[in-house]
Nucleic acid binder design. Sequence first.
DNA 1: TTCTAATATATAACACTGTTATATATCAAT
DNA 2: ATTGATATATAACAGTGTTATATATTAGAA
Lengths: 192, 192
Amino acid sequence: MDSRSKILNAASQLFLEGGGSALSVRAISKRAGLSTIGIYSHFQGKQGILDALYIEGFNLVREAMDVVPEGKANKAQVLQSCLGYLNVGEQHEAHYRLIFGESDAGYQPSEEAIEARNSAFSKLVRVAGSYLPDSSSVSERRQIALDVWAIVHGYVSISHHVTSSNDSDLDWKAMAIRVVEVQLDAARERFK
Amino acid sequence: MDSRSKILNAASQLFLEGGGSALSVRAISKRAGLSTIGIYSHFQGKQGILDALYIEGFNLVREAMDVVPEGKANKAQVLQSCLGYLNVGEQHEAHYRLIFGESDAGYQPSEEAIEARNSAFSKLVRVAGSYLPDSSSVSERRQIALDVWAIVHGYVSISHHVTSSNDSDLDWKAMAIRVVEVQLDAARERFK
DNA sequence: TTCTAATATATAACACTGTTATATATCAAT
DNA sequence: ATTGATATATAACAGTGTTATATATTAGAA
């Protein structure tokens, strides 16, 4: 295996084990059995490592929403995409925290990383937008996608931060799905 | 002014100027004109500084929602509280990012800090819950409050992270208010 | 093969970070 | 005025990301 892959594997391992705070340059290179220099020759320093994981994260989100065929979607299919998003938030907490800036206070995604985020959002625009009437404009489709995104992200984020004893077994995903459904109905009514 | 206040003022200044990444122990003590030791005698190290700012942040949120009299609230009043929350997210971005873990990857709020968060959420339970029928249970009130919180937080968080050229002048607050209103109507219908 | 050039990896240092052991200064009470 | 307690300062330690320098390693040409 080439050094680049060794580094990326080591970084992924540490990231999944301990989140962003476990990702030090020296820890990564030690796990990879290499010196620290490869992180700067094969990546652009720690920023490059975080970019790679950020892109992984948004690709997970995009793929999780990509569970319905392209074209017109019914309500259940839109909700199925939302459930995919919510599952990523639950099962890939480290990646999810990274893509929303909780893993490294200084990290700013690169242009390439932002492209991965835009690609995931475009997927959501197609899925959620396809539930609107065919005559709906692009901005209307983007609007409903933003609404859906804000809702599901809100629940994922809150669920990551509120872990009080009573609330720990709340069904965040069902709550989010219910709110999205109400919003979808309202949007279709508004644009019909 | 006593040393503790000097330190806290210096920390607040740096925090507002440059966010969490500007908050180093040495930078704080230099700004305060003191040595670093006070941060460990008057606070519990950097954790204590972050706790103080975290509490400030959730107090801002609680006060921003405390714009309607206690007791039964109408829809406009609930939405007014939500607008207060959204304004805090917009105008106190540094504090808002801190209370959702974006300022320091290692920071975990102390018990006292979590009390401030719970206090803010309790406010939201009273405000949003008071829009439900009087017969509504505590868990129903907590449920609608959680829904409202997830929605408004979702928009605040997304607005902080999505700053694409086209979307930068979107009216996030109006979008959030509209979604909350739809949800309030649905909740009242569900519980009537 | 042997030499050369380019690439890859390693080492050590620099300027940071949070923290703490030690030392000094300041102040209150006997 | 002296003692005891508290507050502040200094310096060191282990950790962080980064980079200049040095050393291997590899590829291609004579």
